[in-house]
Simulated assay, not measured.
Amino acid sequence: MSPINLAIVGVGKIVRDQHLPSIAKNPDFKLIATASRHGTVEGIQSFTTIDAMLDAVPAVDAVSLCMPPQYRYEAAHKALSAGKHVFLEKPPGATLSEVADLESLAASKGVSLFASWHSRYAAAVEATKSFLASTTIKSVHVIWKEDVRHWHPNQDWIWQAGGLGVFDPGINALSIVTHILPKAIFLTGATLEFPENRDAPIAADLHFKNADDLPVHAEFDWRQTGKQSWDILAETEAGHVQLTEGGSKLSINGELKFSAPEEEYPALYRRFAEIVKAGKSDVDLAPLRHVADAFMLGKRKFVDAFHD
């Protein structure tokens, strides 16, 4: 089968760090074009808009959309309308409604839509899911704290309405939790901390439960310096479970059970190729739904202004 001719829209840091190396190693894809206001890829046709790219390069089969979520719907709608398969960086959109509309459009056009959740493909996630399915879970505690100045320096869009603020990393934790727990959870209460000069939160404290009253507590914070915390802890009848370092290591009762090198984005592109070949879509909105619930149900607390 010939490679899938791929284009990237929005050539920024995540594209250079993750997408380009993953595409280069995957024989199912051939990068043939990019569209970005500022970024280009050496040796690849470059355009400043998706419209110009789609008009000039009809051979494009699929498009990876890597711009901020506030601008993703319009680009995705254009690509799907042109009969292109679409890979959506996380979060898949700024609202639930627009992603649902894109899913419907993809189905009507007979093309694939992929809402990618890269943290679900972290090395130890599947092993953790299997272990939790084999025992009774008593409680879950999520600690997802990092330094926004390190990971998102001078990125104003992330502080704007729709940019999600601390939920930009926090949704990664939610994507794992919604995948590894046997039953669905729902929000029961939340407190969101907003810098007085920003439209998106810098911290969030969330409480969930499932139909069996399993307590799930999540703490997200963008003010952590030093060692970063990306941990999901569970108390079970079989002992203490620690899924750490963003999902890359699993320990049970203090003993390391699983660890492997990070391969999240290569796995995403393998999955994208799989659904394109199968003629189906993969659009799970559970993580984004929890974020929307937090904004709907959460109490707002204003804190000191944030400056880069």
Rank of each mutant, 00 (worst) to 15 (best):
H141R: 09
A286D: 11
S281R: 10
E74Y: 02
V125N: 15
A267M: 03
E235D: 05
E42H: 09
A211Y: 02
N154A: 13
H85Q: 07
D282A: 00
V148K: 11
I252Q: 05
S251K: 01
A115T: 08
D304R: 05
M296V: 13
L181W: 02
H141L: 09
P195H: 03
D282N: 01
I202Q: 10
S259T: 01
V283A: 10
T188Y: 04
G189A: 15
T178G: 13
D55T: 04
D101G: 05
E235C: 00
Q155H: 13
D231F: 12
L6R: 01
K280W: 08
L297S: 10
Q242V: 01
I137E: 04
D28M: 04
K209V: 06
G12C: 08
H19E: 01
G239N: 00
G43A: 03
D304F: 00
T178R: 14
V216L: 10
L6I: 04
S81D: 01
I23F: 11
V11L: 01
G10S: 02
R270V: 05
E89M: 11
V140G: 08
E255Q: 07
K301P: 10
L102V: 09
N154S: 14
P182K: 12
D101M: 06
N197H: 07
S2A: 14
A267Q: 11
K129T: 14
D304N: 08
I32K: 03
T49I: 02
V60C: 12
H77I: 01
M53S: 05
V142T: 08
Q70W: 03
L105P: 04
K249T: 09
I143G: 13
I202C: 12
V99K: 12
G165L: 09
V276F: 08
G110H: 01
Y73N: 03
K280Q: 12
L206D: 12
W157F: 05
E262R: 10
P58G: 07
